[in-house]
Write a protein that binds this DNA or RNA. Structure first.
Length: 1043
RNA sequence: GGGGAAGUGUCGGAAUGGGCAGACGAGCAUGACUUAGGAUCAUGUGCCGCGAGGCGUGCGGGUUCAAGUCCCGCCUUCCCCA
């Protein structure tokens, strides 16, 4: 009698049993090694998504595996329950954010139970409950106490649609849009709370204590953006400072990563918002400066920083003194310098910085190279008719590369490329000999020289200072007046496209034109200049970070309140620890505008000052939700710890015994998209709590691995048959009949005519369809309210009911390409869904959903079931070889599955299990009910237990083993059992496989060699040839080399 | 523009202390059992060629007895940063 596999019956059965038995309750057991496995907690958005399954069930498999290996495993789950969507739902549906959230939590918790995970639900933590956020507030006070939380007025990213500020990390893309809603983010000056994460920048760059993927480490490293250089103080020229200037007011500290280029700093640029601008701007520049400041303020940061944008700026009229050479250099303002980056002032080295170069060329500011080109490349353009006969021949003789091209109607000019000092010297010498009077020639790039001649004697002028720049240019203007409009030599040279690639470079190289430092090699230039600056007191070594402090204020209701109070007499006063939690008022009404409800809630707003007892006002900003998730791994250890008790700042926020036993997290999994937010914040948080004496370790998660994303499945669009009429190129619909995409055989004939268009819908919007009518894409206009006939649908449909062609893209409800896990579970069972999610993709990569691929897993699971439950039809006698082969397959599977689980290679785990299953199927007729068979089957079930927990449990019971399979020990393999008696070895002749030999597994090299050379086909290829070499590569391959 | 990752059959993907490329699946094809099959089982399936054989891991070079794997130079896609 064949027993059918019914996951819909067995899965809920075991789930109930496990729960009743508290099988997955994790309690401290000092006799066992602990293992804290954690996967990122979901945001309670409504329904569980296939992505949650993809993230959580493989992590569960690994946690189960660790448990069977003898670890005491903790694998908790909770909800990251504060955040904007709840408020948006509140506005849209008139429901309290807490109600909406907790309803979703209940629903998703229920859905999660169907996954068959080993979550210990008694440790669940929901971050929006007072028992949780009391501690979130407590941590804020701690950080405030430690000087790690501070309030500052600063320009911050503000989303006008969400009506709240955002952390820098929550602003995405070139357009600077809000991560949540996609609106353009603007800059706003606001008083905000920050966490001093920058204090930990260097420690965050140290990944030596954690096993995290390179990708994440790199992302964090880049985000922190440490750069080493120097701080150099430039001073505004004394005469340009206002009379009432305070001591040191005119000092501008500049950070530069390239102190070796200091001698090339020919001007300074300040951010238009820089406070000194007002003070130093000369009367004649005042108007221009004022209007430029206004214009800059209107642009966003991205527009200002774009490298390809035309440079703009205004001269203030004031000068600064370059501290290394005392040069007076003009001070400009320009929008490409930000007040928020560094000090809001830069030294401009146009010869070696791209933006400074563009700026200097545009405004005629001097550009003096101070770093030699490391590639030795130089160029020269010889003007037609500027040299004597025979110059070309000399160049050819010298082996100098040039191209002769006609220039206008003036004859041929020579475009010369010089490589290395020797060629440059030869060229200059030749030029001195051949240059005709009343001409000049220049060499640019690796050398900056202008050659002039009066016919008798020639002169080489080096372009090496602002003074020589002016002198050379004056001589050129005298010789050739058309260059007169140029303000610098470099501006003149930049008009010749041939020179473009040699005028500017940003490599390190030997210092030139740098006073006493000229000649300093590139590899030591930076450090020597820094040492000298420090010695001279003109600057010092400095480190700069791209990382900003973490902005945690959010002007929203649905978040953990920032426990601070503003008192008119005492100023900013923290709420007393004993008074926590500051509760979110349940009766707050969320304004339709999305504004913070706390601003209008009098009961919340008005309080008394903890210091003086006088009337005071509460902080109405709430905390960024990343604050909640920065410590949730500790919340699970003793959820809602001491809820209801009054606690002090000296208490611990968790049960110390639980912390001592479980923390830190041993293995963490989740999405890579959190690389620079959650994953950096939680590291910072742990380090801060360590410094507060609350933790005694440095890193929250010792190991971390990320999973990819399951995308929507590509799909054909529905077919529409539209009758109507043409209006120009578009078709006006009068009537539409739909044939669904999955009924291709029923589609009407595709094409278009006078009154009809028929084809697949490629795209749609609110008023039209794009229909692929044969080769042509036709736009069909659909009048409002048009009846659309969809077969199998009772009522008439709307435009939105028509499915359009989908490429691979993210799942979204509006595209109707969402895969609902509940439906899959109902159809196939949780075990099959789990196995398919592990099998179908490389876990760290993800990819488009494939609704057909799951069938392979369905078949496999059914085969496993039948293997155990159904007796074979044809019994055959068991022979030793079959027995041996089955054992070998078993040990091979144990080894592979163990190693692959260890290394998160979930797809190959299933493949190896399938192979083992196939081997069992092959041996079944002979081995059924033999001791080898029983061992193999029970081991199969042990290997399956982490992957398909219900199936394994059901079959474990069916073969009469004691409950529960999940309390068994993980099997081990015997290396000796993997061996085979005979092995097949391929034999290559000159790199190509020409034959295969079968030898005893323990055959020595000589035997293998002899067998290889004796192989028939190998002999065909070696016949009559000289065997030069025979390489026996282990027992894997023999390579014969003949000639 | 800078940094990173990836590129393997029709598809998902195996295989890197260099050693038979394509495991395991999907799809497709043929056959068996069936009243029937989108069930199940069996067999086949990189490409070209009747065949011997040749060619094949984005493209072009190189190292090596041997390269998906190592080195050099390109191309494409995706991600992050500007």
């Amino acid at each position: 009698m064949i027993t059918p596999y019914r996951p819909q019956e067995i899965e809920p059965k075991w789930q109930k049993r496990w729960e009743a038995d508290a099988l997955y309750r994790s309690v401290i057991d000092t006799d066992k090694p602990k293992f804290y496995a954690l996967t990122m907690l979901p945001y309670p958005s409504g329904d569980l998504h296939i992505g949650h399954w993809y993230a959580m069930t493989p992590s569960d498999a690994r946690a189960r595996f660790k448990r069977m290996q003898g670890y005491n495993v903790l694998f908790p789950m909770g909800f990251d329950a504060f955040g904007l969507p709840a408020e948006n739902a509140a506005i849209q549906r008139g429901i309290h954010p807490g109600t909406w959230t907790l309803r979703n939590v209940a629903n998703m918790r229920q859905q999660m139970h169907t996954m068959g995970t080993m979550f210990d639900w008694q440790r669940e933590a929901v971050s929006c409950l007072p028992g949780y956020y009391r501690w979130t507030e407590w941590f804020f006070l701690k950080l405030y106490e430690m000087g790690l939380a501070y309030r500052k007025k600063s320009p911050v990213d503000y989303c006008p649609s969400c009506k709240t500020t955002l952390a820098r990390e929550q602003v995405v893309g070139e357009e600077h849009i809000c991560e949540r809603c996609g609106a353009q983010v603007i800059k706003k000056d606001l008083e905000q709370w920050f966490f001093r994460i920058t204090k930990y920048a260097d420690e965050l760059l140290d990944f030596s204590k954690i096993d995290w993927p390179d990708k994440i480490r790199l992302l964090q490293t880049n985000w922190i953006g440490r750069s080493e250089g120097a701080e150099v103080t430039f001073s505004i020229a004394a005469e340009d400072l206002p009379a009432d200037a305070a001591e040191g007011e005119g000092e501008l500290v500049v950070f530069t990563t390239r102190p070796d280029t200091l001698w090339g700093a020919t001007f300074m640029v300040l951010a238009p918002e820089h406070p000194l601008v007002e003070r130093i701007t000369k009367a004649e520049s005042r108007e221009a400066v004022a209007s430029y400041k206004q214009q800059a303020a209107r642009q966003n940061e991205i527009e200002r920083l774009a490298t390809d944008k035309e440079k703009t700026g205004v001269f203030t009229g004031a000068y600064a003194i370059n501290p290394v050479n005392g040069a007076r250099i003009p001070v400009w303002i320009a929008d490409y310098v930000m007040m928020t980056y560094g000090t809001g002032a830069i030294m401009a080295v146009p010869a070696h910085d791209e933006r400074d170069f563009a700026f200097a060329v545009k405004f005629g500011l001097p550009i003096i190279p101070v770093i030699a080109r490391p590639d030795g490349l130089a160029k020269s353009f010889t003007f037609p008719g500027s040299v004597r006969e025979g110059f070309r021949t000399e160049l050819e003789t010298a082996g100098i590369e040039f191209v002769a091209t006609p220039v206008g109607d003036m004859g041929e000019g020579l475009f010369v490329t010089l490589r290395g000092d020797t060629q440059i010297e030869i060229y200059i010498a030749l030029m001195q000999k051949f240059l005709l009077p009343n001409n000049w020639n220049e060499v640019v790039g690796a050398r900056w020289a202008f050659i002039f001649t009066d016919g008798e004697k020639s002169e080489v002028c080096e372009l090496n200072s602002v003074e020589t720049d002016a002198a050379i240019l004056a001589r050129c203007k005298a010789i050739f007046p058309p260059v007169t409009p140029n303000r610098t030599c470099m501006e003149m040279l930049s008009s010749l496209p041939f020179y473009t690639d040699v005028l500017f470079h940003h490599e390190y190289g030997t210092m030139i034109n740098s006073g006493p430092f000229s000649g300093t090699p590139g590899d030591v230039a930076k450090s020597q200049v820094i040492a000298w600056l420090a010695e001279q007191g003109r600057g010092k070594a400095a480190v700069n970070y791209k990382l900003r402090d973490w902005l945690i204020s959010r002007q929203r209701y649905w978040g953990a309140p920032i426990p601070m109070i503003y008192c008119d007499s005492c100023g900013i006063v923290p709420v007393r620890y004993e008074d926590l939690p500051v509760l979110l008022p349940a009766d707050a009404e969320i304004p339709k505008t999305g504004e913070n409800a706390l601003l209008y809630h009098k009961g919340f707003l008005h309080t008394t000052c903890p210091k003086c007892g006088g009337p005071a006002r509460r902080e109405t900003d709430t905390m960024d939700t990343f604050m909640c998730s920065s410590w949730y791994q500790y919340a699970y250890l003793s959820p809602y710890y001491r809820e209801g008790d009054s606690v002090t700042g000296n208490d611990t926020p968790w049960d110390p015994a639980e912390l001592a036993y479980w923390a830190p997290v041993d293995s963490y999994t989740g999405g890579a998209e959190h690389a620079v937010m959650h994953l950096m914040y939680t590291r910072f948080f742990t380090k801060a709590l360590r410094d507060a004496g609350l933790l005694n370790f440095d890193e929250p998660m010792l190991q971390y691995r990320y999973q990819g994303i399951i995308l929507g499945e590509p799909r054909d669009g529905d077919c529409v048959e539209v009758s109507g009429s043409w209006e120009g190129n578009a078709f006006q619909a009068h009537h539409i009949a739909v044939t669904p995409f999955d009924q291709r055989q029923n589609w009407p004939s595709i094409g278009k005519s006078e009154s009809r268009v028929c084809g697949e819908v490629m795209d749609r919007d609110d008023v039209s369809l794009k229909v692929q009518a044969g080769d042509e894409l036709v736009v069909v206009h659909v009048p409002e309210g048009l009846e659309i006939i969809i077969p199998g649908k009772e009522s008439l449909g709307g435009l939105n009911d028509i499915l359009y062609h989908l490429e691979v893209e993210k799942m979204s409800k509006s595209k109707k390409n969402v895969v609902a896990p509940d439906t899959l579970v109902a159809t196939y069972g949780a075990d099959t869904v789990r196995a398919y999610l592990m099998f179908g993709w490389r876990w760290d990569q993800g990819g488009p959903w494939d609704s057909k691929g799951i069938e392979g897993v369905v078949r496999w699971v059914n085969r496993v079931w039948a293997l155990v439950m159904d007796a074979p039809r044809n019994r055959v006698p068991l022979d030793a070889a079959t027995e041996r082969e089955l054992q070998r397959a078993m040990h091979t599977a144990i080894k592979a599955v163990t190693q692959d689980l260890e290394s998160f290679s979930f797809n190959t785990i299933i493949a190896r299990l399938m192979e083992f299953t196939n081997a069992l199927g092959k041996a079944k007729d002979a081995a059924w009910e033999s001791p080898v068979w029983d061992t193999a089957i029970s081991h199969l079930l042990l290997l399956l237990a982490p992957i398909t927990p219900h199936l394994a449990e059901e079959l474990w019971e069916a073969i009469g083993k004691p409950y529960s399979v999940h309390m068994q020990t993980w099997p081990s393999w015997d290396e000796a059992m993997l061996a085979v008696d005979e092995i097949e070895i391929p034999v290559q002749v000159n790199g190509k496989v020409r034959g295969k030999i079968v030898v005893a597994a323990n055959a020595d090299e000589a035997t293998v060699k002899a067998a290889a050379l004796a192989e028939v086909n190998v002999r065909r290829y070696t016949e009559g040839q000289q065997v030069l070499k025979v390489i026996v590569a282990g027992r894997k391959l023999v390579s014969v080399v003949v000639r």
